[in-house]
Design a protein around this nucleic acid. Structure first.
Length: 420
RNA sequence: CGGGGAGUAGCGCAGCUGGCUAGCGCACUUGUUUUGGGAACAAGGGGUCGAGGGUUCGAAUCCCUCCUCCCCGACCA
C-alpha cells in the first residue's frame, strides 16, 4: 500500500481542546476524526486497527463456540417496555418517532433484542446452550463524552449472550468467557486487571470487570502498593487498608479504563420477556442468561494510552495497522536502486504475508521519519543512498528503537527472523 | 445539569484597554534548488473573526442573548 494513495492525514500540532495522550495521538496520527462531540469517523488507519481488534475477538469467541450474528440497532420502544428498561435507561436512550409515528430508539445495548430472538427459535432443552455474539454500533446519549473515543455517544461494542438450561451451564459458559477475555486483551498488548464488580443496571449477581490502569480512567479501583494487584474479591475494603493477598502493601486508589464487563444475568430478561423452554423433565423453565461486553473502540484508546512515547504510537504487533513501513528517503525514489529495492521488498514481503505500507510521498526525510514514529508501525525499513553505498539497508524496531544495518540481499530474511 | 476554560484560513496561534486594507507559523498551489530526523528561495490561493442582536461615524475588539467544543464534578455499562 502506497502512503500517497492511502488517506493518512497526520498533524504535527496538538489539537485544541485535547488532554488525554490517546486522544491527541488518535487525532494526530489520522486514526479518527470528530464529527461532533462523542461522534467519530474511523479513518483508514484507525479502521484497520479496529478490524484487527475485532478479528482477535472473533477468533477467541469462535474458539469457545460462540456464534456471530448481527442484530438491528433500530428498535421499537415496545420491546424495551417489556423489561422496563425504557425507563431505567431513558437518559442514555436516543429516541424518536419514525414517519409512521412509531416510537423507536437506537439500541444502547441488546439484551432485549437477543432474548426476543432466541425465544422465537428455542423451545427445547435440546437446543441449549446457545451463545451468540455481534460486533456492532451502540448508541448512548452520554451526558458527558470524554477523551475522544473513550466515552462516545456512538461506539463499537462486542456483545455476547449465553442461554443455558441451568446455573451449571451458565457457570461453564461464564468461565469460558472469563478466559477468552483474558486472551483477547493479552493479544491486544494490554495487561488487564480483573475485578469482581457491581452488576448495576444490568441486573444479575456475579460480574467481573476488565480494567486497564491509566491516567484517563473513569473507574477507580483499589490496588495494593506492593503487589500491584486489586484487593481481591472484596472491593469493600477502604483506601489505606492492608492488602489481603501479599500482606505487605497498603491499598491505594487507582483510576482505570473499563474495557470489558461480563455478567451472570440469570433470568432477569428471560423472565420478563417469557424466554422459556421445555426441559427434559417435561417442565417449562426459564432460560438462564449471561452477557459479555467489550468496548472495542475504547480498546484502541487504551492501547494507545499504554503504548506510546513522546514521538507517537507504538502499536503492539497484533493490532498494528501495518506490519512494516518501507521508507525510501525523499529524493532517492528517483534513484533507480532505491526505487527497485522498494518495489522488491514490498512485493516479497506482501507475498510472505505481511501488510506493508510504503511511504512513497515526495517529502523530506525528516518529515517521513517523524510521521513513521507518529503512526507507530512496528518495523521500519529505511532505504537511502547513504547506506546503500555500502550495500546496506536499515531496519528499525519502533518499540525498542534498535537499529539493524543489513546487507540489502538479506532484508527479507532478517524481517522473517525478527518477526518469528 | 453545576463549576472552569476555549471558539480568528485545513491545523496551531497573535491581534482584543474602540481605529490603517485582519496577521503569523505550519499546511496548500506553481516554479527552481534540495533530500538520513518536520529543507531554502520566489510568486500565489484560501477568512460570514462561532451565530444573532445592540452601542458607535466606525466592532474580531465594548454590551446582551444564544450555539458549539474541552476539562472537573454529578451520572453511567
Amino acid at each position: 500500500m502506497n502512503w500517497s494513495k492511502y488517506f493518512i492525514p497526520t498533524f504535527k500540532e496538538v489539537p485544541l481542546g485535547t488532554e488525554a495522550i490517546s486522544h491527541q495521538l488518535s487525532l494526530r496520527a489520522g486514526l479518527v476524526h470528530m464529527l461532533t462531540s462523542g461522534v467519530y469517523s474511523y479513518l483508514p488507519l484507525g479502521y484497520r486497527v479496529l478490524k484487527n481488534i475485532e478479528n482477535i475477538i472473533r477468533e477467541e469467541m469462535n474458539n469457545i463456540g460462540a456464534v456471530e450474528l448481527f442484530l438491528p440497532c433500530l428498535h421499537p420502544i415496545e420491546l424495551w417496555q417489556q423489561t422496563g428498561r425504557d425507563k431505567t435507561l431513558a437518559e442514555v436512550m436516543i429516541k424518536f418517532k419514525d414517519n409512521r409515528g412509531r416510537q423507536m430508539c437506537l439500541g444502547p445495548t441488546h439484551e432485549e433484542v437477543i432474548t426476543d430472538l432466541v425465544k422465537s427459535f428455542v423451545q427445547s432443552y435440546r437446543q441449549l446452550p446457545v451463545t451468540l455474539y455481534q460486533i456492532q454500533t451502540k448508541f448512548r446519549d452520554e451526558i458527558r463524552t470524554r477523551f475522544g473515543i473513550v466515552r462516545a455517544c456512538e461506539f463499537i461494542m462486542k456483545d455476547a449472550y449465553s442461554f443455558d438450561r441451568d446455573q451449571e451451564g451458565l457457570n461453564k459458559n461464564y468461565q469460558l468467557m472469563y478466559e477468552a477475555y483474558k486472551n483477547i486483551f493479552k493479544r491486544c498488548g494490554l495487561d488487564v486487571l480483573i475485578v469482581a464488580a457491581d452488576s448495576g443496571a444490568m441486573g444479575g449477581s456475579v460480574s467481573h470487570e476488565y480494567l486497564v490502569p491509566a491516567a484517563i480512567g473513569e473507574d477507580s479501583i483499589l490496588l495494593c502498593s506492593a503487589c500491584q494487584k486489586p484487593s481481591g474479591v472484596d472491593q469493600k475494603q477502604n483506601e489505606g487498608d492492608s492488602c489481603l493477598l501479599c500482606k505487605n502493601g497498603k491499598l491505594t486508589k487507582q483510576v482505570a479504563i473499563e474495557l470489558g464487563h461480563i455478567f451472570q444475568l440469570g433470568t432477569k430478561y428471560s423472565q420478563a420477556q417469557g424466554a422459556q423452554f421445555l426441559d427434559e423433565d417435561g417442565k417449562q423453565k426459564t432460560m438462564i442468561m449471561g452477557c459479555y461486553g467489550i468496548g472495542v473502540s475504547r480498546v484502541i484508546a487504551a492501547i494507545i494510552e499504554k503504548n506510546c512515547d513522546d514521538k507517537g504510537i507504538i502499536w503492539p504487533k497484533e493490532v498494528a495497522p501495518f506490519d512494516i513501513e518501507i521508507l525510501p528517503i525523499s529524493g532517492s525514489e528517483k534513484d533507480p536502486d532505491v526505487a527497485s529495492l522498494t518495489n522488491q521488498y514490498d512485493s516479497e514481503l506482501m507475498k510472505a504475508g505481511y501488510d506493508v505500507l510504503v511511504d512513497d510521498r515526495d517529502e523530506s526525510a525528516g518529515r517521513k521519519f517523524n510521521d513513521a514514529d507518529l503512526i507507530g508501525i512496528p518495523i521500519r525499513i529505511t532505504i537511502g543512498k547513504r547506506n546503500l553505498a555500502q550495500g546496506n539497508v536499515e531496519i528499525k524496531i519502533r518499540r525498542t528503537g534498535e537499529v539493524h544495518l543489513i546487507p540489502k540481499e538479506q532484508v527479507v530474511s532478517k524481517i522473517a527472523e525478527l518477526t518469528k
